[in-house]
């Protein structure tokens, strides 16, 4: 059997004496798509940073496969508006080969923006640019932190489709952080519901019926999350928007543990 790309064993993390992660186990195997969901303050970003090696866990063991190649897509860039930089130069920062950069931009569908200033890109275009940089070095593990943030609903669907295509083409594992349940769950192998500890995990259909999941996200959302067929985009997308607002409002008062 192929060893996992990365394996986290009962990881805990404290900030100023507060436990933000408590005995979290996470195994990511080759080619798997895992989605991390959870309310605000659940420790999703902290967990992602531990996986990336940006911060160290206070307790627990992490083992990484020796041929792990991570491609990372941050939530957003904190780029100062005074820095003039084109999309091409943005990719050039890590890859000198301009042909390769152009190919990757073509792959994510923003090749026409090659010489545009980064600051002029729309939300969706920016996410594609970030995705291009993440896949530049053919990673076998893609880490995407809220990849559809700041993108309109139609664009979200297209972006998830692109991620799923890239997953097939690169044959890489994907770890994705998301608030957005419906779209994510339809294309994911495993969902991990995090609220400082792992509340529940498993196949999307299983998780959405799990009492721990319902306690956090409410029963209203489950009707949408198990809704997995896609023949009418407009309507399902509409419903999904309403749903995500409900779940976000629902979350803060419900944090437990």
């Amino acid at each position: 059997m192929i060893p996992p790309l990365i394996k986290l064993n009962s990881i805990s993390k404290y900030f100023n004496g507060n436990k933000v992660l408590s005995s979290v186990d996470l195994t990511i195997n080759q080619g798997q798509i895992i989605t991390l969901i959870g309310p605000n303050g659940a420790g999703k970003t902290t967990l992602v940073k531990i996986v990336l090696g940006l911060i160290h866990a206070d307790e627990g063991v992490i083992s990484r496969s020796p041929d792990l190649r991570i491609g990372y897509m941050p939530q957003k860039l904190h780029i100062d508006p005074t820095m003039p930089i084109t999309l091409e130069r943005f990719l050039n920062l890590t890859e000198k080969n301009k042909k390769l950069c152009a190919d990757v931009l073509d792959e994510v569908g923003v090749i026409q923006l090659l010489s545009c200033p980064l600051s002029s890109l729309s939300g969706g275009e920016m996410q594609r640019a970030l995705l291009a940089r993440a896949i530049l070095h053919k990673p076998n593990f893609l880490v995407l932190d809220e990849p559809v943030q700041g993108v309109d609903v139609v664009g979200q669907e297209a972006l998830y489709k692109l991620i799923s295509e890239l997953h097939g083409r690169l044959n890489c594992a994907v770890l994705m952080v998301s608030h957005d349940l419906h779209l994510v769950m339809s294309s994911t192998n495993e969902v991990i519901c995090l609220n400082q500890h792992v509340c529940c995990h498993g196949h999307p259909d299983q998780v959405s019926r799990n009492p721990a999941f319902i306690e956090i996200f409410g029963t209203k959302t489950t009707a949408y999350t198990t809704y997995t067929h896609h023949h009418d985009h407009q309507h399902s997308l509409h419903g999904e928007v309403k749903k995500s607002k409900v779940s976000e409002k629902y979350v803060p008062g419900r944090s437990h543990d």
């Binding site: 990336l52 940006l54 990372y72 860039l77 820095m83 930089i85 890590t94």
Partner: peptide, 17 residues
């Protein structure tokens, strides 16, 4: 020059790279 530009644009992305 290049590493400095990279960490100026995004410290964490640069570190992962």
């Amino acid at each position: 020059w290049n590493p400095l530009l990279a960490i100026t644009i995004d410290e964490e992305l640069a570190q992962v790279e």
